[in-house]
Structure formats: structure tokens, C-alpha cells
Amino acid sequence: MFKIIEKEEIHTIIPLVEKLNDYKISVNVLKGRFNEMVTQNYECAGIYDNDTLIGVCGLWFCTRHYSGKSVEVDHVYIDDNYRGKGLGKDFFTWIYNYVILKGYESVELNTYVNNYASHKFYYNEDFKILGYHFLKKL
């Protein structure tokens, strides 16, 4: 089952988000950041197997000059035990339909350079590479 995670339940995604990064961010820092994120143009979709959260995808809503009303998907993760079964494709179909109903016209994302499995998935979903993502920590 796919659904938007209620703001009050946002911390339930932290165990899955922690698996995304090679570097470690403390749980307290993640809680603080997600508390702030849910006050911005952010929602988080979840995949549930009964009552167990097995996948997540953050959704940032904005308008961009080059893509119009756009949703940037963020921190996409599906538990290892549920991969390779078509769940990612079904999840993204659900996300596309959800954001279209909200009046959005494009989806964009970043993915880690060494995450080759995600590259293949996004190519198969007809995403195109438009540029590079740069980050400078201050």
C-alpha cells in the first residue's frame, strides 16, 4: 500500500533513510531536519507491507523556470527484502498519479554517482540527465 506519511509520523522514515548514506548523520540531527522539512513544501510517500514501512520517497514541491510546477523526489529507498519485485515501478506510478492530481507537470531527482542500480531504474522510467548536482558545505 502506498500513502503520504502524516507529518506527525515523519520520524518513522529515519531507519530507512539512514541506510541511504555512507556517511552517518545522528538520529537527533535527522529528527531535527525532518521536523523542519515538514514545515516547508515537503511531503513523504511511504510503501507499507501491512503496518510495516518498507519504502520511502520524499517529495519537494516547487515551480522552476525550466520545468514548471515540479516535484523533486528525494531519499528514495526500498528495503532490500522487497527489491526486484516491481515495487519501485508501482511506487513511481503511484507518485506520478499523485503529483498530477496536485497539478504538477514534471518530476526530477538527484541520485548518487555510484548508485548504478538507481541509474538503470530511472533510465527505464524515462528520466533524462540534464546536469550535475554540486554541493558545498558551509
Rank of each mutant, 00 (worst) to 15 (best):
E8Q: 12
E8I: 14
E9Q: 15
E9C: 06
I10Y: 08
T12I: 10
I14S: 08
E18R: 14
E18L: 12
K19L: 12
K19M: 13
N21I: 02
N21R: 12
N21Q: 11
K24R: 10
S26T: 14
S26A: 08
S26Y: 08
V27N: 04
N28M: 08
V29D: 07
V29T: 12
K31P: 01
G32T: 11
F34Q: 04
F34Y: 15
N35K: 09
N35I: 04
E36A: 07
T39A: 09
N41D: 11
Y42W: 15
Y42E: 03
C44Q: 11
G46Q: 09
I47L: 14
Y48G: 04
D49I: 05
N50Q: 13
D51N: 15
D51V: 09
L53M: 13
L53W: 06
G55H: 08
G55F: 10
G55S: 05
G55D: 08
V56S: 14
V56F: 04
L59Y: 02
L59T: 02
L59Q: 05
C62A: 09
T63M: 09
T63H: 13
H65S: 13
K69P: 00
S70M: 07
V71A: 09
V71F: 06
D74C: 07
D74Y: 06
D79S: 12
D79Q: 12
D80G: 00
N81V: 00
Y82A: 00
